[in-house]
């Protein structure tokens, strides 16, 4: 009996595990880089739009109506961020950093939306600010998230901005304070109305957002997280 073989087998097995860990980590890094690149692209788009506003003083409302700002990219970002969060964990520093950037982009997009809707009376957006927590204290958050995802897919014109209530980001905390959102999550702000709290199923959500009837619908075919 040779001990060397036992040690060699252990070494090779450990090396295979190490390699698997390394490859998985490389994929995760590539995902993070992909998200960061998308966020930078979105950030440039927002800046560009803001600059257009500043340059022109006003942007033709027809252009706004035809180009629904950034919500599509933000939805894709949300989906990708959810995957990264699932792989790396919600307490991962990289994930937290990405979430902060994502939240900032959402806030900017939301502010831009407000500005556009004020300037263009024909532009009547339907939006939801959704505050959730994933620290285990909000069992209904995941389900409400699914309802909102489904609504977003059914009504492409609906804008959903989702925020991690506990994210340590001053801009977000300012938004929470301004809109007087309590910690009884999940919380929803629909079209500048007062916050509503607690889980709502699909039917209740449709009742809660009567403006949905003004939006065109499509058949929901995906269930992005």
């Amino acid at each position: 009996m040779s001990w060397q073989k036992y040690i060699l087998a252990f070494g090779i097995t450990a090396a295979i595990f190490g390699t698997a860990f390394y490859i998985a980590a490389r994929f995760d890094s590539a995902r993070v880089a992909d998200i960061r690149a998308t966020q930078e692209a979105v950030s440039i788009d927002i800046l560009s739009l803001e600059t257009q506003f500043d340059l022109l003083g006003n942007l033709p409302c027809s252009i706004i109506a035809d180009n629904p700002v950034l919500s599509d990219e933000l939805d894709e970002l949300a989906s990708r961020l959810s995957v990264a969060e699932g792989n790396l964990g919600s307490d991962n520093a990289e994930v937290i950093s990405l979430k902060k950037q994502y939240s900032l982009l959402q806030i900017k997009d939301y502010l831009l939306l407000q500005e556009v809707s004020q300037k263009c009376s024909s532009f009547e957006p339907v939006y939801v600010l959704y505050f959730y927590s994933n620290t285990g204290d909000c069992t209904d958050c995941a389900r409400l998230g699914e309802v909102l995802t489904y609504l977003r897919q059914t009504y492409p014109g609906l804008r959903v901005y989702s925020f991690d209530y506990n994210l340590n980001l001053s801009a977000l905390q300012t938004l929470i304070a301004l809109r007087k959102v309590r910690g009884d999550l999940p919380a929803l702000i629909i079209n500048d109305r007062a916050p509503v709290y607690g889980f709502r199923n699909l039917e209740q959500m449709e009742e809660l957002i009567p403006e949905l009837s003004t939006l065109s619908t499509t058949t929901a075919t995906t269930t992005e997280r």
């Binding site: 995902r31 389900r143 309802v147 699909l202 929901a220």
Partner: peptide
């Protein structure tokens, strides 16, 4: 709980 009707998830390839 959600009342979301059953539907087949669509598939589009993305390495991500």
């Amino acid at each position: 709980a959600t009342g979301i009707p059953l539907h087949m998830p669509s598939f589009h390839f993305d390495w991500f």
